[in-house]
Each structure stands twice: as structure tokens, then as C-alpha cells.
Design a binder for these strands. Structure first.
Lengths: 343, 343
DNA sequence: CTGAAAGCGCTTACAG
DNA sequence: CTGAAAGCGCTTACAG
């Protein structure tokens, strides 16, 4: 059954309606509703009651037109699919939603043309600012320079150092991971990571190397083993490393997927985790870490926090205060059963 | 270094600016830009050039105020975290983005108060319609009745049958899964599912039972084995079923996580997949299916399509055409190595 | 083909 | 304390 519901819906109430019902001018109604103090208490009450009766919701378009600020921001993501954008986006949405800001979501699907198109649309909607969320920490080209509102880059920083960028401290994260393994009493640490074309992979490896060096050690095999971000690579790498370096006692994995593969291979090789070998993953991806055998210790990049900080920086920029450059937020280790101190 | 960039940003160009630069009235400028046909070609050209020079972007607030339509919609999700909302949201964003519609994203985090608050904000921004995305297929309470714009419920249908709801056909999906296993030559099918409190779990089980019954068979153990949506449950259930029903030759799993657990247990029990036993999962969650050993056949709910259809239904509703009730979209089997026909 | 004028719904000086 | 008036940026009849 198809229904034509054309003009059924009643027109939303307007300030004029409220004023008429309350028996005042629209100027007074406006002041009463906005809490201005040049209104008699009794009058204010009458207006508020009228507004309530009519379910009056002030038209944000009209208000925005007048004030020059809309209370909206654009969230521009390059791939909603990727699991890194979502937490950042959640954090940002959270920070904005708590205030009175509404968020436009645009997914450019990694396409520069589509991104440009979305930026144009957002600007015509007069957003007060933009957050550009990337899915990799490799620097990305900035939006075309003539964007007349503040822009904050989140996770993927801008190539332009005079832009405002917030990302995760992956070098520090690599260091944290290795320090955690060392604190468990491990000395023979192998680092199995993903695609070496990712800056994140390089950064984590640099941090890991710095940490072992600081302890007077070196990585098992003298290098990071790069491969792909997959369980299969984790399995293969673990088998190879155990065969060539039988004394390996810890694995720092570049992702939780890799770590799952490493765990599976170690189990099949009869190496006990965490008894003989400690394993730490990366991303703290709940579905992978808590279902692992044993449950997987992992590095969390605090992406929701990153999103919230990005939102705060954007607020500040809208208010005229910008601190250009790349801000790197610290990560943290979430300990589970796959790493325990040697007793 | 902190910079005060207060009034640095140049005011966005307005139609008045364009008109002045082109030497015409704003009325004529408006017509030229909007492709009205009562404009001399040469005049139109001058206006368009002026607009280009000034990077003129028409103020959508002003336009919306005038037209009564804003070209915006609200996407209200109950949990961004959950992996079911995201694909639906992507599909909807895709369908809208292709047109000239911008999407407000709001995450209510499963809280009715917050949801109500977001609805109010969206209405004050004069969205043309709303899509409410849920994370479970259990019917949910409708938004308060006095929402003056069309609403479409996606994935989680509304309890009110006069609302417009789009969800996935989980009964059909259960049937499809079992029919696929039967088509592989299997006869002893076990169904291991998750939390029985989920309507989706019940629906898939109902479909599975109907399909085995239609083939003159019954499920292994005479029932669906409900538990939780986890790998651990999958492992435990598989061990138990193999022990009690050694002739089991196929597992239909209520989620890919369960299926991963089942696969692991079967490997450890020495049962060859797909040689002796076929396994099919549910959700077609790439990171789990493609990393499984062997790669996991799974049911895909086509959630992106669901999001696109929801967007289309909302368009139709905005244009006055609504078809109330729950629309159930079909799922599909994505075949991988864990199920192959017996040769 | 072009432009002056009204108006969308609101806020804000400015008089009274 | 209250209200008439101007104006945010645009579109659309309506004259010319």
C-alpha cells in the first residue's frame, strides 16, 4: 500500500507563532527564549509556555545565517571501512555532540576528486571547521589552500607543517611494547610487522630498535621482519624465526592480526605462551585480542582520545587559537595473558 | 607557537559580491548561476566568471531557509562501535553523497535520552528526514511520534508497523546457509549460534531448521546450539558436537567468530575441512574469513545495500511516497575454501 | 532579458 | 521592559 502523505505534515512552529500565542512581539519572544535579561519574568514564562505548547524548535538555519556561525563541522574521512577512522570519528563526534555542534559526515573513499566535491558542499553549508581523518599515519596532501575555515588533520597528518595535525606516537609505541617485553624478563625479542610501505610500520620498528639498543640488546635476526598485516604472515614469520633463532623468547607484532598468526604457529610448534614466549600485538582490536589463546596483550593507540583532541583543537582554531604542527599522542599497553613476568 | 588568527580569514563571497563584479543585479546573478533560462548568454557568462573568480559558493543556509528544504538528513545510530551500523551507514552515505544531500551523523550510544536530544538538534537544523540505524534486528521503540519529517529504520526495525523499516532477511539467510551445505553433499548439519536473546539468532535457526526439514533431515542434536558470539564458544561447541555426534559433516555457524572457533577445534581434532566437514560462517567479516584456515565461506547480509535502500526509501518518503512496514532484504552466500562440493 | 521588492525565520541595536 | 525595523544571503513572482 502506497500512501501519498504530501502536505499532511504540519509546518514546524516559528517564532512568529510563539509570539502570537504569547501575545508579544517576536523580538520579545526571541529574547525570552534566548535567556536575555531585559524581559519581565512573567512575560518570559508566557513565552516559554507558548514555545512548549507548539514544540517550538528555533530554526538553526536562520540563526546561522544571522550569526555567521552555524555550529556545524565537517568530518571528512578517506575510508569509513578502515578500522582506524571509526574510533577517531567516534571520539570527535563525542566531543562535539557534548556541546551544541552537529557533525556532517563525508566519506571520500580515498578519492581526491570526491574529497574536493565534499569540501565544496560543506563550505556551501557554512561549516565552522573541518576535521580530515585519514586511515594511515603517512602524511597526506593538504586540502586546497583556499579553505576559509580552520582544518584539523587527524591520524593522517598534513604534509604542510603549518597545518594543525594530530596523530599517534608510533615510535613511542614501539618503544613501549619492547620495554613491556623486557620488563617481563625477556631478552630475545623478535619484531614481526606488516607492510614496510606504511610509515606506522617504520615508526614502530624504529621505536622497538631504540628500546632494545637502550637495553644493550638487539632484535632477534638483527632486523624487523616486515611482511603484510595478516595472520598468514604472522604464522609464517613465527615458524621461520623459531627455526632460525630457537632462543627467541618474545614477539612484538605490528598488528593484532599478525599476533594471532604468531600465537597459532607457536601453539602448533609446542612453544608455551606466556610460559616460554611472550607475545604482544598492536591495535588492541577487541575481537582479536580477547578471543586469542591466550588473550593477547596489545598496544592501544587511544584513537577515540585522538578524535576528541582533534575536536578540541578545532574548537580552539575556530576561536582563533592555532598551534600549527604535528601533535603526537601517546599510546598505551593493555596487558593480558600473553605476556606475564617471569616468576 | 600560538597564533591568533582572528579576522584573518576573508569573509566568504556572497551573491552581492558576484553581482557587483559582474555589473548586474543580484536577481540576475541568481538566475544566471542557477541556470534559469531568462538570462542572455553573454550576461550569464560574465556572472559565472565573476563567481569563479570569487570562489563563490552559494550559502546553503539562505537557500534552505527560503526553499523549506535543506538537502540534509540525519543518520542516527545507536552504536557506532558495533560493526553492523558502519556498513549500513556507508551505504546510506554513499546513496546520499551521490546526490546533493549532506548527512548529519549522530551516535546515541544506545541511550534514549541522548537519542531524543539528537533528534531535537537535527529538527532544529531542519533536516529533510531521518534514518535510524540499529545494531540488532530486534524491533526497537519508534522515535517519539511528533517528528515532523519522514523516518526510515534500518537494520533494527521499528516496533510500530506503520513506520518504514528495512532489515535483513535472517530467516532466509539461515535457509540459504543450510541449502548451501546440502548442495555440497552434506547431510549431518549442526547449527552453532550465539546469544539466543538476539532475534537474529532465532531467525537464522528457524531458517536452518526449515531447510533441513525440507530435505527430510533434522539438525544434528535435534536443535540449534545457542551460546555466545565468540570463538571460545565455537571451539567448545565443536568439541562437544564431534564427541557426541561423530557423524557430523557440516557446521552452520551464527557468526564468523563462532566459525573461527569451530575451525580451530576441528583442526585440533584432526577433522579435515573441507574434506570431511564443511563450515559456513555468518557476517562475511573479511578480516576473519580470509585469514581463516581454510578461508571461510560466509553469509553476507549486504548491509551496504541495506543502507542504500534505506536512503532510497527516505528519498521516496520525502517526496511523499511511503510504503509502511518491514522490508526484508535478502542475504547471500560468499563461497570460500571451507565448503566445497563432495567430488 | 533585467532589476526592484518581498520574504524565508531569526537576532540585535535602537527607540520608546 | 517592550516592540518596530533593519538585515543575514538568497529566490521568486512581478514589473518594466
Amino acid at each position: 500500500m502506497t500512501t501519498q502523505s504530501g502536505s499532511t505534515t504540519p509546518r514546524a512552529a516559528t517564532l512568529t507563532d510563539v509570539a502570537r500565542l504569547a501575545g508579544v512581539s517576536i523580538a520579545t519572544a526571541s529574547k525570552a527564549i534566548n535567556g536575555r535579561d531585559q524581559v519581565k519574568a512573567e512575560t518570559r514564562l508566557r513565552v516559554l509556555e507558548a514555545a512548549e505548547r507548539l514544540s517550538f524548535a528555533p530554526n538553526a538555519l536562520a540563526r546561522g545565517l544571522l550569526k555567521g556561525r552555524t555550529g556545524t563541522v565537517g568530518l571528512l574521512t578517506s575510508d569509513l571501512e578502515g578500522r582506524f577512522s571509526i574510533p577517531v570519528l567516534m571520539g570527535a563526534e563525542d566531543a562535539f555532540g557534548a556541546g551544541r555542534v552537529s557533525v556532517f559526515l563525508c566519506d571520500a573513499r580515498g578519492d581526491a576528486i570526491r574529497e574536493q566535491h565534499h569540501v565544496r558542499a560543506l563550505l556551501s553549508r557554512r561549516v565552522d571547521g573541518l576535521i580530515v581523518v585519514g586511515s594511515r599515519t603517512d602524511p597526506r596532501p593538504p586540502l586546497s589552500a583556499d579553505v576559509p575555515v580552520p582544518v584539523v588533520y587527524a591520524y593522517a597528518p598534513s604534509e604542510d607543517p603549518s597545518d594543525v595535525s594530530i596523530t599517534a606516537d608510533n615510535v613511542g609505541a614501539g618503544r613501549l611494547a619492547v620495554e613491556h617485553l623486557l620488563s617481563c624478563g625477556r631478552r630475545r625479542v623478535a619484531h614481526v610487522s606488516g607492510d614496510p610501505g606504511y610509515k606506522a610500520a617504520q615508526d614502530r620498528a624504529a621505536g622497538a630498535e631504540a628500546a632494545v639498543a637502550a637495553a644493550g640488546l638487539e632484535l632477534v635476526g638483527g632486523q624487523t621482519f616486515f611482511g603484510s598485516w595478516s595472520e598468514g604472515w604472522g604464522r609464517g614469520a613465527a615458524r621461520m624465526i623459531v627455526e632460525q633463532h630457537g632462543d627467541v623468547d618474545a614477539f612484538f607484532c605490528g598488528s593484532d592480526q599478525i599476533a594471532r598468526g604468531v600465537l597459532d604457529a607457536l601453539r602448533e610448534l609446542g612453544r608455551d605462551v606466556p610460559g616460554e614466549v611472550s607475545v604482544i600485538g598492536f591495535d588492541n582490536w577487541e575481537v582479536l585480542t580477547t578471543n586469542a589463546r591466550p588473550q593477547l596483550t596489545s598496544v592501544d593507540m587511544n584513537l577515540e582520545r585522538l578524535g576528541r583532541v582533534a575536536a578540541q583543537r578545532l574548537f580552539a582554531a575556530i576561536d582563533g587559537t592555532v598551534r600549527p604542527g604535528v601533535e603526537e599522542l601517546p599510546c598505551r599497553v593493555v596487558t593480558r595473558a600473553s605476556t606475564v613476568p617471569i616468576s
